[in-house]
């Protein structure tokens, strides 16, 4: 379905991206910011996977019971890599947030700014 020539699946992806960006920018809580970042990441992954799909396509696994057309395998591999990268970034961010919490006793930006 493509009203106004817009591919709604892609538009949904952009919407998700914006939701994540808003969380990242507007929220004061560092954890919520991180969640926003994750939402953004997910939206880009969704974009890639969406692009790799083909109408009526099967997963690109060449075993009995599947037939052409197949979805493109490259986006899946890309997203797999992307997910691992995202997990790693999240891990480091969490470790930093834990440190900030241990040191300042808060993870709210508003409160961190008020500290002496």
């Amino acid at each position: 379905m493509q009203p106004f020539g817009l591919d709604l699946d892609y538009v949904a992806v952009v919407a998700l991206f914006c939701v994540g960006l808003y969380m990242l920018v507007a929220k004061s809580n560092l954890l919520k910011k991180l969640l926003g970042l994750n939402v953004m990441e997910t939206s880009v992954f969704a974009f890639i996977v969406t692009a790799g799909m083909v109408e009526g396509g099967d997963p690109p696994i060449m075993v009995a019971g599947t037939s052409a057309p197949y979805a493109s395998p490259i986006p899946h591999a890309m997203v797999l890599t992307g997910i691992v990268v995202a997990v790693s970034v999240t891990a480091v961010a969490l470790a930093l947030i834990v440190q900030i919490h241990a040191h300042f006793g808060t993870i709210e930006i508003d409160e961190l700014k008020e500290l002496p």
């Binding site: 991180l34 961010a93 930093l96």
Partner: peptide
Amino acid sequence: AFAALKYLF
């Protein structure tokens, strides 16, 4: 950690 987190985001 705060500077790093800002950099990270």
